[in-house]
Design a protein around this nucleic acid. Structure first.
Lengths: 351, 351
DNA sequence: CTGTTAGCGCATTCAG
DNA sequence: CTGAATGCGCTAACAG
């Protein structure tokens, strides 16, 4: 069959197989291959079959890059994070589960790990949007993403300030208050707070919950015990050392850290300084990442339904992509306290 | 200044800001903007400054898609996974840490969650490679990726059979043998095996380790106790039920599952069937994902240095990208047994 | 120093 | 039913 005979000028594809390679080997035009691959009709059955055979032989796949440049949609949803750490990967698991069976593929992009850049979310969105991805879930953006692109966006754990995109978060105030109340109830009075990243609404709200609980208990807020850990282990190192090196009598008997990552680091610093947990220091975190059960002792923390939050964000994004109006702009999921062995009464008596 | 006056035909950018928008508003040509943005020299300082001003005002970022189509490299490394689950996200954390400061950004792509497709790795590689990403780390590919593209590739937990790409894995045989020996040492004789995904070398090797340990102990292998769970909770459900519903006397007193995900599911099924762990059934997993400490009781498992494996894969890939010869084609990291509360002697006596 | 031209791989008109 | 032409946003030659 002459169709199967490669033309004289045939060059075996060395690197990536392109649509041109397929066309040349199949002996048809590029546009015919495109139509066959995309299932457009108006192609003779015999031609289609033959082309598909070549496609299969060569292992051709349309380049998402080239096609997205030309097309308006790609069937790919982006998940934009600063970094792949326990919090964002937990959301990712939830998003991934929820994406199953929707026909969309997932592309997670970490564009913030170069350090100094603060507007990674707008930057990433701009770099990928409009072409590569049809929509995006942005995790913990610290800046507005307005004017970034025209694609639909949903934010998880949004930044402070007005934002026009739908958001998903947990009950930050309630969770923080519950965590602080637990410590107060145990008899702690010097309860330090290791805050989150500036610019994030969750950071502001957890701080507010902490202060509310102190006030309700009649405990005056002490600026010396109120630090910022930036939600990260490295940024928590200095403030944790400062807090735990305060002279006895001033040193906190408990630390409520704004997320688990910084709480776990507080525990490390405590161990380093010879403080026993929970006898000498109680520690509470926020998020309940899987790692929170791996420490010794396991960490008491505020449980957020992270995977569910991710799934919810994807659900909203899919609705947006389908053109359905979004019923609620802010979806808040409940948080609950999970008590493990990192807390005790000030003296060290167990619960 | 006339340069700042938009030309008559000015249209405000609605969706994404393109290089053309910037050029038009800055009153220069597209190529001039390109040169400025990419820091090429041969541009008057004043022009550069002016263009950068417009770029900033408009929040322009070069589209990774368009530029990658033209350029040979993108500064982005792809991590290709079937799915975002605890195993792959743990690797992702390690890769992400190792990528910090290298100048590369990370793009994780889940192309296998559409179900029936088995050759997701070649497909994803073909869709992204050659253009979007400079190199790729492929997690648990079950098929060869040869001829997919021309970019360098490193595989973690590779498929069975000859593969030309460098690979990283853990000590599967040794780990599986240690796990089985633990159970044998406790006095178990009916030790079931819940195998991994066919096509993966790790699956084959863990099975081999299990059989080796049985043979060394003089315990005949029993086909009825040797099942396949596909490394996934859903695929483990039926075989787990079958194993645990065997009549007393035939029912295994211990299950060694090929990964933690299936081991955790075995524990769920056991609970559902009213079997107590570890009194009625001992369970051991493989991987030591963070979730393995969250179960009650915590799971005994074979610890693989997952994050380190990810970091190692990235290190090799970077060497490949830099053109350095790779010293070893197969990098195997040690595995060790981590005993938690999910195992006991057959009778149920604690350790 | 700056603008013009030519494609990267592909999908989409519009003619044959 | 199929092929040739056009352009997506961008960069790299090459002119001016």
């Amino acid at each position: 069959m002459s169709l199967n005979t490669p033309p004289a000028a045939y060059t075996p594809p060395l690197g990536r197989v392109t649509i041109t390679d397929v066309a040349r080997i199949a002996g048809v035009s590029v546009s015919t291959v495109s139509k066959v691959v995309n299932g457009r009709d108006g192609i003779a059955a015999a031609t289609a079959e033959h082309v598909l055979g070549v496609v299969n032989d060569l292992g051709y796949e349309t380049s998402i890059v080239a096609s997205s440049l030309r097309r308006s949609h790609t069937g790919v949803i982006g998940v934009l994070v600063a970094d792949f750490e326990p919090y964002s990967t937990e959301l990712l698991k939830g998003i991934s589960n929820a994406a199953e069976g929707t026909g969309y593929e997932l592309l997670a992009y970490a564009g913030g790990n170069d350090g100094k850049r603060t507007d990674w979310e707008r930057r990433s969105l701009s770099r990928l949007g409009g072409t590569l991805i049809d929509g995006a879930v942005v995790v913990a953006p610290t800046a507005s993403m307005a004017s970034g692109t025209g694609i639909p966006v949903v934010a998880i754990d949004p930044h402070s300030g007005a934002e026009s995109v739908p958001t998903v978060d947990g009950d930050n105030v309630g969770g923080a208050r519950a965590a602080t109340e637990l410590l107060v109830g145990l008899g702690h009075r010097r309860i330090a707070y290791l805050g989150g990243r500036d610019g994030l609404e969750s950071s502001r709200l957890r701080h507010a919950g902490y202060l509310q609980a102190l006030e309700a208990a009649g405990i005056p807020a002490d600026a010396k015990l109120d630090r910022v850990g930036g939600y990260r282990a490295d940024l928590s190192d200095a403030p944790a050392h400062e807090l735990l090196r305060l002279p006895t009598g001033e040193r906190p008997t408990a630390v409520f850290a704004a997320n688990d990552l910084s709480a776990l680091h507080v525990m490390e610093v405590a161990r380093e300084l010879g403080l026993r947990i929970p006898q000498d220091l109680s520690v509470v975190g926020f998020d309940d990442i899987p790692e929170s059960t791996r420490s010794t002792p396991p960490l008491t923390t505020v449980t957020q339904p992270l995977q569910q939050m991710g799934a919810e964000a994807l659900r909203i994004l899919l609705a947006l992509l389908a053109g359905s109006p979004v019923e609620e702009q802010h979806r808040r999921l409940p948080a609950s306290l999970t008590v493990r062995e990192s807390v005790a009464r000030p003296g060290g008596e167990p619960l």
